[in-house]
Amino acid sequence: MSRINEFYNFGYSALSIVEMEVRKIRHDSTELWTRGVQPALWLLLFGEVFNRVRDLSIPGYDYIQFLTPGVLAQSVLFIAIFYGITLVWERDVGLLTKLLSTPSPRSSIVVGKALAAGVRGVFQSLMVFTLAVFMGVNLRHNLLNVAGVFVVIILLAMCFSSFSMCLASMLKTREKMMGIGQMITMPLFFGSNAIYPITLMPPWLQSLSKLNPLTYVVDALRALLLTGDYSTIPEDIAFLSLITLVLVILASFSISRLLE
């Protein structure tokens, strides 16, 4: 009985944290809208130019189709990887102390925050979808596929936001977080299949990109939005979930170090 209670309380706390974040977004959503600018630029500028290069895509799809899932994944990665900065800020204003002094388990607070990053990711997906429709990018838009995209995007956001929270509890300042964040997003992005297929990479980068969670995200997104070949999706989701679980556990243990 008490086990069930614990599970219930855990979920309840995590969802309360999500509610907190959603309510904040509802009061001021400018951040969400400005986040839409970057993927738009990627698609409109980079995408249009590289659309002329034939070999960059996978057979049967033009480059802008190929690029859209990659840009979506990238823009959510950016949201998530800097999520720890919010945590540092909350520490500075005393909010984190108050969160951690509640009886809610620390892991539920981490999961709640990661899920809140996921909510932002879902909103980001909606914006990229809309953009794609306006640009006439042909994607598979049925409901199940879109739901599948949301699941993958939420996992992506949870994965990298908990990674970011681990980083925050080690680095402890916003300046360091900005620096490290910039430093790792580029290799993550370029070391993945987001803007070119893995087959074009030199062999050493190919093997590295197979360890990169972003590769699995983009792979799953392309299967859902372009090819309809779902054979690799279970593997993608399993890999992502495993990494996310490990990072959430790590972040739950390290988050209280921010207070020291």
């Binding site: 500075d92 204003v93 909010l95 102390t97």
Partner: peptide, 9 residues
């Protein structure tokens, strides 16, 4: 617990 810094959100 009411921390020293004003901690209301």
């Amino acid at each position: 617990y009411v921390p020293q810094a004003v901690s209301a959100d």
